[in-house]
Structures are given as C-alpha cells and as structure tokens.
Write a protein that binds this DNA or RNA. Structure first.
Length: 440
RNA sequence: GUGGUUGUAGCUCAGUUGGUUAGAGCAUCGGUUUGUGGUACCGAGGGUCGUCGGUUCGAGACCGAUCUUCCACCCCA
C-alpha cells in the first residue's frame, strides 16, 4: 500500500472473486431480460476518435472525457506549441450511446432496421469520485434505432420493470418526461433558445427552491417577464397543468400526447411504476423526445437513465434515423443490492468436489477420476500440491467446497475414493457412479 | 471544475503536551494433531507511520506541496 504504484488509479477498483461473481449476477440478470426482448449484443472499442466524442454531450460532458495523449514526435510538437490537449486523437468512451450511433452509421449496410442491440461494457468519466460515482463503471445499454414508434418507449419501461423485479427491487420508480414538453415551455415563455438552461434550472426546483431557481434563470439571461410566466409551473406541475401551460405550443402538445401514451400503454402491460416528472431534464444534449430516469428511495442518484434521440446518427451523416434506449448503471445497482443485502446467498460457483493430493501416484489416479466427474458435469478440482492434509482441508473449507475426496493406497486398491461431506463430517466409500448419482 | 475531508501492518483501528527498538484485534503462516477442515491453546512473519520536502538536538505526531479516500456542489450510471 505504501509502495509507489501500488494502487489503482483514482475512481477505479479491483474486484475480488465474490465481488466479481456478484457483478456477473447483475450482468447475467440484465442480459437475460435483454435477450427475451430480442436484442442482440454488440461491442465497440474502449477508445473512440476524440472527434467522435467531442461536442456530443454538452459542455460538462466534454470536460469529463478522458483523452489519450499523443505519442512520440506528435507529442513533442504539441508540447512545443502548447497544444497538448488538442493534439489528442483518441479518447476513452464516455458512454455507449454515441459510439453506438457511430457504429450504426458505419455499418448501416450490414444491419437491418429497426436495429435492436444491447451492449454491456465499461465507460470512463473524469469525474470526482463519490459514493456511487466512479471513473470507470459499467453501463448496460439497450437501444432500438430506426423506428419512431412509441412502442419502443413502452418496451423500455417493461424492460426496466422486468430487470428490477428480477433483482428484487420492485420499489423503483421510472421518472418520465419529454424534451418536447420542455421545448414547448421554452417557446411559451418566449425563450426557445434557452431550453437547456431552463430545464437545468427547473431540475433543481425541489432541491434549492423557487427563489434560487429564478435567480439562476436570471443569470442565464432569461428575461423577467419570461420568468414570471413560468410562475404557474412552480406551484403546480401536474401533467394537466403543464398541458394547459403549453397549449399554444404545437411541439409542447405533441410531447404531452407522447408522454400520456407511454404511461398509459405501460400501465396496460402491468408497468405501474412510471410517473411524470416535469423537472427531469437530463444534461446530455442529444435527447429530443422521451427521457427516463430510474430512482430508488434508498439510493441518492439514478440507477438507470435514457431517452429518445432523433438525430444522433445525423451528426455522423445518416439522417432521419431515430433511436431510443436506456442504460442500467451496474455499479450503482451493485452498491444498492449490497446495501440492502439483496444478493442471493449462493452467487458464484465453487467446485462441488475437491481431491486431496497425497503424492504423485495418488494424484495421477485423482486426475483420471476428476476427468470422469467433469465429463458428468460436476465441478471438480484436484489440489495441485501434496501439501499437508490440514492445509488442503482448510483450503476446501475456505472455498466452501461441499465434498472432499481422499485417495490414498487404500482407495486406489479398492478403486473407489473416500468421500467426506464437509458439512456433516461423515465419510463413506463410494464408487464414481454412486458419487455422480449423489451429486446430480 | 469549486469547497471541505481522510491516509499508521493484508483488514479495522490505538499511539498521551514532538523524546529511546511503533501497538492491538482480525487475517496469514507454522506447531499441538506426519490420512482429516470449521473450535481451542502456543508461536512466527509482516510497517522506512501515503509520498516528497521543511522546522527541530530529535517527528507517526508541527508546517508546505503532492497523491489518495470520502462528502457537498456541478453533472451523471
């Protein structure tokens, strides 16, 4: 720990066997749900070209992208001209959505649309680490691209409900809003260009209160009259009142209609955890329609989020292809499950059987028997060294291996091992056949 | 990016107003038990006190810088 270089970089961690097994449990659960909806897996590189990522996430996002340093002569020149940062040609991916858009455009002729994919990979953000906030973390993305249908949004709410039900977290809620509504609000108060500023400020309403939100809006250059018009929303933000508010805005009304459809259709399919949240804004620039955020009452930040992006592929040269998707935050879900003690007892499979090693000849017999057991699908290990019995027993005990097989002269002569049940301590002499029957 | 916070054996922590060879519990390894684990008893190894520099006769304790941890903001999974 004290030695130089003996730790992982800020905001990253190692995973011990139990932690890794529990993470796999989360990945497997999520993947299982994605599979049942007919999504196909893809992968993309850890690095993208810097220009692929820059400018897609908004000011804040751009700042948090990890850039890869130029090397050799290029670096030398960049240092001379004081342009090190701009000389970066590659960067670690910041999310999975933008690389996916690039992927779709690049492989458009090899894909059939609408295209449904999932992607479970790490992403990197140069954020200040905190609880539930890491610099390297896994996102589990599902997206469908090439379809405008609201059926897709509805399917996403079903997927979210399925995943969290399976993980034992049915008390989550899916906060839903629609960027079109936010755009409508901006239009109605006469500040259509300030959409982002307005939504970001509105987002803080329940945290910092009305006065501070108004102050923030003012500093963003929004006029007093416009702020005054917003007043109604500060007091009553039910779906009906917002609908009335944006009645004069075509796009706003469209948003209201979409939102109502998604919530109503989801409910018909048994997904009753959706709720309209007019203050949900989301800072990522590329969202244009529905936006989602999943929260849990016992966790401070969102554990899943996403939305519809009408023109993300347009930036890469493919017009009129709309996509929608959400991303599950595996690391936050891990923290939450750990906190609530919700991991199943037996996650991660240890061997069912271990052969104690008595020496070269005995081990040779063990290898033969181990081969038979493995062929029968029984997880088997042979202790590699002829260490002291006590040490080998302790190893089996530490790994909670339920059966230990003793193979010495007596057993080789009898042609069957002594089987010790580690739970009860009972021992018996069993043939391979009997053992396989007992374990299957 | 802003403000604050933490850092002593693998882990959780003691360490009195700066003073000789830095401690405990757990874990690890060994022994009591050379074909038997989880209990018990005995013993051992392991730390240049995050790092670099400074003050001092003397620093784990004081000062500075840096890295790391955690927290609030920002933003987000």
């Amino acid at each position: 720990m004290a030695k130089a270089g003996l730790n992982t970089p800020k905001g990253t961690r190692d995973f011990l066997p139990q932690q890794a097994a529990r993470r796999n449990y989360i990945f497997d659960t999520i993947r299982g749900v994605f599979d049942t909806y007919g999504f196909a897996p893809i992968e993309t590189p850890a690095m993208e070209l810097t220009e692929t990522l820059m400018g897609k996430y908004g000011e804040e996002g751009d700042r948090l992208i990890f850039k890869v340093l130029a090397r050799g002569e290029k670096l030398k020149k960049a240092v001379e001209h004081n342009r090190v940062e701009k000389s970066s040609e590659e960067a670690l991916r910041y999310d999975l959505t933008v690389p996916f858009a690039r992927f779709v455009v690049q492989h458009q002729n090899e894909l059939s649309f609408p295209f449904k994919r999932y992607q479970i990979q790490p992403v990197w953000r140069a954020d200040r680490p905190q609880k539930g906030r890491y610099r390297e973390f896994y996102q589990c993305d599902v997206d469908m691209i090439g379809s405008n249908s609201l059926l897709n949004e509805v399917e996403l709410t079903q997927i979210i409900a399925d995943v969290f039900t399976k993980l034992g977290l049915p008390e989550v809620s899916i906060k839903i809003n629609n960027r079109k509504i936010l755009q409508g609000i901006a239009e109605v108060i006469g500040e259509p260009d300030k959409l982002i500023d307005i939504t970001v400020a509105l987002d803080k309403l329940d945290k910092i209160g009305r006065e501070k939100v108004e102050a923030e809006l003012a500093t963003k250059g929004i006029g007093k009259e416009a702020i005054a018009k917003l007043g109604v929303l500060f007091e009553n933000v039910s779906l009906d009142s917002v609908a009335k508010f944006v009645a004069s805005s075509e796009i706003g009304l469209k948003g209201i209609e979409e939102l109502k459809t998604v919530i109503a259709s989801s409910e018909k399919l048994g997904v009753s955890i959706c709720e309209f949240d007019p203050t949900l804004a989301r800072g990522l620039n590329y969202y244009t329609g529905a936006i989602f955020e999943v929260t849990h009452p016992d966790f401070p930040s969102s554990i899943c989020g996403g939305g519809r992006y009408d023109d993300l592929t347009g930036i890469f040269g493919l017009k009129d292809v709309s996509g929608v998707g959400v991303s599950f935050g595996a690391d936050r879900i891990y923290d939450l499950l750990l906190d609530k003690n919700l991991f199943p007892e037996q996650v991660g499979l240890s061997a069912q059987v271990m052969f104690v090693n008595f020496g070269e000849n005995e081990a040779a017999q063990c290898q033969l028997w181990a081969k038979e057991l493995r062929a029968a699908g029984i997880r088997t290990e042979v202790y590699p060294d002829s260490a002291k019995m006590k040490k080998q027993m302790k190893y089996a005990n530490d790994k909670s291996i339920p059966y230990v097989l003793l193979v010495g002269d007596r057993e080789i002569e009898a042609q069957q091992p002594t089987v010790k049940n580690m739970l009860t301590g009972d021992q018996s002499s069993l043939s391979m056949k009997e053992l396989i029957n007992e374990l299957n």
